[in-house]
Simulated assay, not measured.
Amino acid sequence: MMRPDHSISCWHRSWQLLLFSLLLLAPKLCGGVNMQQFLQSLDMMRNGCVPKFKVPLDILDRIREGDFDMEPTQDLLCYTKCVAQLAGTLTKKGDFSVNKAMAQMPIILPPELQEPAQKALTYCRDEQKAYKDSCAKVYYTSKCMADYDRAHFKFP
């Protein structure tokens, strides 16, 4: 008897988490989410990505608030990519898409964070061009956005 592939199992759990998140948010999709729902979705995305990477929770708590003042490990870089994947902001090739991120903002952000996030992403849209690694592209774009407007920045 063959064992199921662990990577397929993890992928399946990630999609279950994303679908659960969408179902939780579905009643508010037309009018956007409120801050409490947004913070809950951050926790769900974090819980979907944490088991895949060796990143201490104190580091994740720092980046949640926009503190990227550290030398990132490859696990931290790829944790940010995992979050971007759950948020629906990656291309089919696994690269960060500014256009997809802009399109997701009205769905996943509360109204009070949408305009600041759009301004930050517009400012940081070319940040990823300096990196070849897709994990680094997401991490450094996120870092740029946090540096641009830490007061409005939140990350799972």
Rank of each mutant, 00 (worst) to 15 (best):
M1L: 14
M1I: 09
M2I: 11
R3Y: 10
P4W: 12
P4D: 09
D5S: 15
D5R: 14
H6P: 14
H6R: 13
H6T: 14
S7I: 10
W11G: 03
S14R: 13
S14D: 11
W15M: 14
L17H: 07
L17I: 14
L18Q: 10
L19Y: 04
L19K: 13
F20T: 10
F20I: 04
S21C: 12
L23Q: 07
L24Q: 14
L24S: 12
L25H: 02
L25G: 04
A26K: 05
C30G: 15
C30P: 01
G31I: 01
V33L: 11
Q36K: 15
Q36N: 11
Q37G: 08
Q37E: 15
F38H: 13
F38I: 03
S41N: 09
L42S: 00
R46I: 04
G48Y: 00
C49S: 00
C49V: 10
V50K: 13
V50E: 04
K52L: 14
K52H: 11
K54D: 08
K54Y: 07
P56N: 13
P56E: 12
P56Q: 10
L57T: 09
I59M: 09
L60I: 02
L60W: 13
D61Y: 02
D61A: 14
R62P: 00
I63T: 06
I63P: 02
I63N: 01
I63C: 03
R64G: 07
E65V: 04
G66N: 09
G66C: 05
M70N: 06
E71Y: 06
E71V: 12
E71D: 15
E71L: 15
P72N: 00
Q74V: 11
L76P: 08
L77Y: 03
C78F: 08
K81D: 04
K81Q: 14
C82S: 05
V83A: 06
V83P: 01
V83C: 11
A84C: 09
L86T: 08
L86A: 11
L86S: 03
A87E: 08
G88D: 09
T89H: 11
L90S: 01
L90D: 01
K92W: 07
K92F: 13
G94C: 08
F96K: 02
S97C: 02
S97F: 05
K100E: 13
Q104Y: 01
M105Q: 10
M105H: 08
L109M: 12
L109F: 15
P110C: 13
P110Y: 07
E112Y: 02
A117S: 15
Q118M: 08
Q118C: 03
K119C: 02
A120M: 05
L121R: 01
C124W: 04
D126S: 07
E127D: 09
Q128F: 04
A130M: 06
K132M: 08
D133H: 10
K137C: 03
K137Y: 05
V138I: 07
V138M: 07
V138C: 05
V138Y: 01
Y140L: 00
Y140K: 00
T141V: 01
S142A: 15
S142V: 05
M145W: 04
D147C: 10
Y148L: 03
Y148Q: 06
Y148A: 12
R150Y: 02
H152L: 03
H152G: 06
F153A: 03
F155G: 01
P156Y: 08
